[in-house]
Design a protein around this nucleic acid. Sequence first.
DNA 1: GTGAAAGCGCTAACAG
DNA 2: CTGTTAGCGCTTTCAC
Lengths: 335, 335
Amino acid sequence: MKYVTIIDIARELGISKSTVSRALAGDARNVKPETMRRIQEAANRMGYQRNELAVNLRRQMTKNIGIVIPEGVTPFFMNFIQQAQKEMRDKGFRTIIAVSNEDPEQELENLTMLENCRIDGIMICPCHKSKNLDAYKRMIQEGIPMVFFDRKINDLNVSQVCIDDDLMSHFMVEALIRRGRKHIVHIAGPNFVSNAVDRYHGYREALEKFNIPYDPRYVVDGGLTAEEGIQAMEQFLSYGLPFDAIFGFTETSILGAKSVLQKLHYKIPEDVALCCISGTTLCTLVYPTISAVEQPVTQMASEACRILQRQIETHDLTSEKIVLRGNMKLRESTA
Amino acid sequence: MKYVTIIDIARELGISKSTVSRALAGDARNVKPETMRRIQEAANRMGYQRNELAVNLRRQMTKNIGIVIPEGVTPFFMNFIQQAQKEMRDKGFRTIIAVSNEDPEQELENLTMLENCRIDGIMICPCHKSKNLDAYKRMIQEGIPMVFFDRKINDLNVSQVCIDDDLMSHFMVEALIRRGRKHIVHIAGPNFVSNAVDRYHGYREALEKFNIPYDPRYVVDGGLTAEEGIQAMEQFLSYGLPFDAIFGFTETSILGAKSVLQKLHYKIPEDVALCCISGTTLCTLVYPTISAVEQPVTQMASEACRILQRQIETHDLTSEKIVLRGNMKLRESTA
DNA sequence: GTGAAAGCGCTAACAG
DNA sequence: CTGTTAGCGCTTTCAC
């Protein structure tokens, strides 16, 4: 369990470790081709594996970046990661993924962990819009490049790329109304998630636009999980109000709602239209009964990568805000 | 962008860096309480963040482990990660996740990356049963604790925890037959994934047991993705053979098949029963129309953690093979 | 082209 | 209880 070091190679070849280091770093101009060859041969033969820990300690740069996500079950985040990982890899960065499980404390732990590992930058989708504000602030002040994505942080001047939740929500509800749906339930997200607040606004605006009176009982708290979606649906049903559409905050909570309705033999989408602002195209396949407006995940990841990279390279942490618009086309449900 | 070091703190307080190091490591017995307090106060005030790079280089131990998964869209892997991350965190390990995108080359890159970061151990679900065998062998020989999970590697004596795919597949197909399904299509996985081969065996065995003649046209190659599932289904339909059930290798490929059938207005599960050996309980919610035998993800993660930890702590890399049995209960589909 | 030496930030023996 | 010292493995001047 002893790793081979450049010193071992140097000793084996009777040369200095500096030369070995240079050769292995591919510094062709400062190493004689013959020596180069011998060193590479020895390295392979002896099974040398360069110690990034030492390199990074020396270089004061890790070429690692961290991605912090609130949860992992929604395809949205995995798609984001996939794209981001690909783009960063092309630029020579490795990616460390950390999941916070919607818990600000775990998020803080993750951030500290990443900082202690001296990552070069962080992309984060925060799980709470205010709980870890101090930590974010401190890290940025210390000069760590940070880009926030998807969920917004309003009270802090940070770089962020997000979608226009208000607009997309408005659009989606309007589309439902134009299709003849009159009684639209909104399973709202928690108010500590900015997107939830914005989507609620969009819902209200659309109703107003069509002069549909707002009844607060049509908005139920749905949290983030499927279980919470189930509870929300059951609560709404207990009011005994008529309804013909449900607009959920997350894909997960709407799935919960759906399962409740299915048990009661509702026909979807004839009796009731289900929709959400969804993460990915895959969504059509996975949740075929649910209409959705698509979020531009790929674009979001690309923008986040671009900003992070700029910050890392230029050491200029000027914040940059990007608001994307999703694919504003209501997908018809297929089931 | 200059991090505070223990030397800075030592200088500030006019003491030696050793004392600072001890204090910050919580070595209460060797530091006067008063000094302890002063050091902690200074560390906080100055915004000290311990440099793990240096610690790890010195300690020759990172307390980081790596988890390598072939893909991220299936809930199964995210559930595994969630559980594993939790258990390892409790034992003081951090987790680095790397996704290979079903590509052996990316997998190799991931492994090298993790090795260069000197992780203490690796959990891996390999994307190919033979392509990276040499790399696995080399790493184990070098003394890196490795545990394989879910997908088996038969040609190498490694630690692995997996499920009895053969048995579960047999059970599932038998259950279909007992429910009166006669013409069962099997959308098979690629033969470079061990589980696919085993499940195919289970399928054959069950047919044999009930004296149902085997027609090779009922087994179509379905790969791993939804797209491949779609192609597979279309190919099978082109044969014009009767069928009343489909047993897919992955959740994703069966979803592809399902979408094809739905376009043709098949009723699921009345006209055709869909099933797969699924990753998680969540599956019931997400794919309500698909029957499934559940895999014991949590248990799998726990076992993997246990083995990895033992290997890390004892430096004893003796391999250990665990074969789990899923929850052998065919869930009735709900839609 | 190559080597010698300094040092990245930290820990752990050893000495006091 | 505290300080001194010697590295962990590597890169990078600065000499030769």
